[in-house]
Amino acid sequence: MGDLKLNYTVDGGDLIQAGEASSKMKMTLKKLGLPPEVIRRASICMYEGEINMVIHADGGEVEVTVGMDTITIRLTDHGPGIPDVDRAMEEGFSTAGDVARDLGFGAGMGLPNMKRCSDDMQIDTQVGVGTTVTMQIHIN
C-alpha cells in the first residue's frame, strides 16, 4: 500500500481562524483509525505549526504523509526565516506581536511543543527566503 498524502493551504492574515487545516487533518487521521495518542500528538504539532505560519509568515503550505509506521508533517512558508533557531527553540522566547499575545499566543511555546510532541523535528530556514519544518511521529 502506498503512503497517503494530504495537502493543506494555510491562509495568512487571520489568526482567529487558524486551525482549520489541523482540524481537517485530525478528522482524516481519526477516520484512518490511527491510535488516539498519535493523532493527538500529530494534531498539536500541526496546529502549532499552523499558528506559527499565520503569525510570522502570512500562511504557507502543509503536506502530511501517512505511511505504514510514520506520519510526516512538512510545513513550508515563504516568510522572513528564523535568524537564530537555537533561540527560537527556547521555551518562552517569542517575536510574536501584541495581537497574537492578546489572543493567547506568543508565549514562546510553539516550537518547543512541536519538538516535544514529535519523534523527530528538523528546521530548514533561510532569512528572507522562508522556513520548512519537518516533523515525524511514529505510529507504534
Binding site: P36, E37, Y47, G104, F105, N113
Partner: peptide
Amino acid sequence: LLSWVMGRAQN
C-alpha cells in the same frame, strides 16, 4: 496562554 495549555494539558 494557549500554547502553554496545548503543551501541558492532558487528554
